[in-house]
Nucleic acid binder design. Sequence first.
DNA 1: ACGAAGCCCTGCAAGC
DNA 2: TGCTTGCAGGGCTTCG
Length: 273
Amino acid sequence: MPELPEVESICRGLKPRLVGRCVKTAVVRCAKLRWPVPSDISKKISNQEILDIKRRGKYLLFIFDSSALMIHLGMSGFLHLVTNGNASTKHDHVDFVLDNGFLLRFNDPRRFGSVLLTEKDPLQHKLLKDLGPEPLGDDFDGKHLFNSAKNRSLAIKNFIMDSKVVVGVGNIYASEALFLAKIKPDASVCDINLQQYVLLADSIKSVLLRAIDAGGTTFRDFRNHLGEKGGFAESLYVYNRSGLPCRICGTTIEKITIGQRSTYFCPNCQKYG
DNA sequence: ACGAAGCCCTGCAAGC
DNA sequence: TGCTTGCAGGGCTTCG
């Protein structure tokens, strides 16, 4: 599934090929996503030039003169750049037909993604305006985590997955970052000191940067080729490794459920507060 | 106000 | 072999 590094890779890849191009029309094949694709989307962006492509959290933002497209890939969404006339396949939702003989196609089997349009600054859209800082930005650090945790009492894993605290930390990276920071995932945020939050913030940055360096490998591909050597899978310390020995101390990795999600940790390396 | 649970959806894998 | 069941995931929405 596309995580933040994957979305960042897509953004960097599309930018040089799409900025400056015009969208001739948008063809909606299946409007049913997390929210319905706006019925007037084609009318609103037809003959509009793509001025810029940005990322905010896991949202891709296509900036036009008087509107912006907000695309979230959910967990199975994918954007293909194909030649116009390319036969559509199952789960193709929207085609953005470009002025150069190509089209940008949004495909999403599980429909957790979204294609939305806004006519104001997308950063002020209700889905984006309350988001926390970017994890790789300068305004995200241990002090930010420490201050955000004041007067709260939830599990640290749920805390760092809260997009109001910091964006882009998904289920996989949450387990990995907590392992690197040596904190048990079910520890309460109020039992963690500033020094540990500094290490945790560094761990989040580190794991995301390593994933970007791995080329934005998706875990969907990883699963399809389970057992084979694949990019980021080789770097995982705990995720999807229950029953296997910790790469650091050899203790058996355990799996628990926190917030209805699978959570992996080393009972020896990771501590409470 | 906060925290936890519910929900959306499909593909895949495991169990019968 | 074919069916059923359970699980995975992001993140908004609802409930307590």
